[in-house]
Design a protein around this nucleic acid. Structure first.
Lengths: 158, 158
DNA sequence: CTCAACCCGGATATCATGTGTCCGGGATGC
DNA sequence: GCATCCCGGACACATGATATCCGGGTTGAG
């Protein structure tokens, strides 16, 4: 019914990473956004496994974007953190009860599942058209062009 | 991240109710679909509170559709059972951390929340264009026109 | 080579929510 | 009056999200 909070964190972190020169440790990203570092690390690992961000170990290591910000979509981050599963999971209750439909006649999804799948497809398409660069642009516009500069300045002083 | 199972149950029940002559008890609806009656009752109550179905008490009472099946949309059932809340809840983390944005500058939603709101709007519009009558039609078509007749026959013998 | 910084993965604890059951109360028709 | 049925709340349980911690491995600097 609702999306994980980690999706929002992941998107903010990607926007921040798009403004950084080099790799950023999870600790710094957590401090900047005021969220628990240990938990954020888990979501960053998920983003890393999905190939959205790249991780470099060792001293001066950290996370950086694996692709240009204009090529990473919101849907990529959602799929990486929240999983690729569908919003609506059909429990196939037509195969239960006294009028159960035999499974061999269920090669096609029922009309209810089809309706949700079509709606979800529109949702995914919309999210796949928004990139990290678009989000950064929107944040900058909302702040009259000061927000991203402040982020870069804060990062360079840490 | 996922929708409640009760949404699917509610939709199937609405389709069944569209085939009934009079009110159907929750017990009958649960038996027909092979799902727990006590739990289904909770979801039917939610549908009743939302005005999707009408309940009649006393002997020979039960649930019936409050409107014609062609005027009840899938979105109505989703909102009634799963709540009117959004899929994506913005935690407003821009108001946290060392670069916190003062709340008085947050009259507008952040660009991330706007992207999700736009995508979710498409999802809702798609669901609001599918009615219970459409679902019943799809189920009948999938079964080559036999399924709804079987349901009506089963109902009349109980 | 040693050390510190940092990522990775798993184990664990806690809490909210979904799932499911049960019971008392009230309404309705016979 | 009685059986049937809805309504609302209380309760237990499973699941997943949230959050923390620790040991192990990797890398760069001194």
């Amino acid at each position: 019914m609702k999306l994980s909070n980690g999706v929002e964190w992941g998107l903010h972190c990607c926007v921040t990473l798009s403004q950084a020169q080099g790799p950023l440790p999870a600790q710094i990203l957590a401090e900047l956004h005021g969220i628990p570092a240990a938990y954020l690390a888990k979501h960053l690992q998920a983003l890393s496994r999905a190939g959205v961000v790249r991780s470099s170990q060792g001293q001066d290591g950290g996370y950086s974007l694996a692709s240009p910000a204009s090529e990473i979509t919101v849907l990529d981050v959602v799929a990486a953190i929240d999983g690729p599963g569908e919003l609506f999971r059909c429990a196939e209750i037509r195969t239960r009860g006294p009028l159960a439909v035999p499974p061999e006649k269920c090669s096609q999804r029922c009309s209810i599942a089809r309706a949700f799948a079509a709606a979800e497809q529109l949702w995914r398409e919309a999210l796949s058209k928004v990139t990290i660069a678009d989000l950064a642009d929107g944040i900058d516009r909302d702040s009259s062009g000061t927000a991203l500069g402040e982020v870069r300045e804060w990062l360079s002083s840490h």
